[in-house]
Amino acid sequence: MSLLDVENLGRTFGEAHAVREASFSLERGEIVALVGESGSGKSTTARMVARLLAPTTGRVLLEGSATVPELAYRSKVQMVFQDPFGSLNPARTIGHHLTRPLLLHRRATRKQAPQAVAALLETVGLDPSLAVRHPHELSGGQRQRVAIARAFAVEPLLVVADEPVSMLDVSIRIGVLNLMERLRDERETAFLYITHDVASARYLGGRMLVMYGGHIVEGGPARVLTGEPAHPYTRLLLAAVPNPRRGSSSTVTRPTGPRPSTGCPFTARCPLVTDLCRTTMPPVTRVADGHWARCHALGKENQ
């Protein structure tokens, strides 16, 4: 039984399909990166997994059950948000942010809470004296560490991390990614890491899912996907990443016209597009062990 099974998840906002037919699973202690550009549906997927948003179709199973009660779900699935300036309450102290989940989920009594808070802050590499401070007194990196500490207060099995480093300064991003990796190793916590940064997804290792136009279009081990991408969108994404060592190579296709409502979402930008792509969403095609993609061209190329 997987820790998390996402089955055929979909979400619409009015007419717009933000997420369609998203299926994937996560094992205990596994890091899965969900990579895509803004508007790809990756954050919507994250919010559905974190139960902040109800799916329109499909379901999310935690340890095989789709009906885990609210509080029990919260004690096993936590979330770290993108903006450390928005995810902490400006009117409350750091201590408040960490004490509340401890008390709510009975991880500590009121008496034990101060020590537990201090221990949490030390776990994420912060000085316990910060507990009495307010968020605006902390730097962005410190705040994001507080947000991670808050998620870990309940000793979760899964942490949904929605672009946790994209708003941080370059020199401290790696520190936060390393912290996530360390917590995974020490506590066997799984991460669903949402990002637009393919390189950081590869850095964290694990598996990678590439999302485009609401569909997960490719999935597999991060090293394989970044090395031998099968889907034309993944190739485009990789070519666009600034890479001074390899030197610039790409000529980028420009989007032409709106995203189609049927068929593959990538048709408007795809160099391999055929008439079939415009009408039918490609099925999941196996590329290699644990590596799959949804593209009609896969059968025809020598992949």
Binding site: E70, R74, D83, G86, N89, R100, P101, L104, R150
Partner: peptide, 12 residues
Amino acid sequence: RDFIAAAKVAGE
């Protein structure tokens, strides 16, 4: 703001 969503995720 996300801190409200974060409070919900915490189980408030």
